[in-house]
């Protein structure tokens, strides 16, 4: 599954921190594609994958709170 974050809204550091914290539940790959930060999520260790991605996106916003 793939999810992207616009760099005009999100900071790379916040995405990286979220990936680090969620690292134990799935395999994440971050790639910087100029205007967006693409995050590829595989091997999700959770039955509801969509819910997992939703929670991850919320967590990135939460991490943006301190930025």
């Amino acid at each position: 599954m793939k999810v992207d974050f616009d760099k005009r809204i999100y900071k790379l550091s916040a995405v990286k921190e979220a990936v680090k914290d969620y690292g134990g539940f799935a395999d994440f790959t971050i790639s910087d594609t100029g205007r967006k930060i693409d995050v590829s999520v595989e091997n999700i260790d959770y039955s509801d994958h969509e819910n997992f991605i939703d929670e991850f996106c919320n967590y990135v916003i939460y991490k943006m709170g301190g930025k």
Partner: peptide, 8 residues
Amino acid sequence: KCYVRVDY
């Protein structure tokens, strides 16, 4: 209370 997505 919500799942939030923000984008341009």
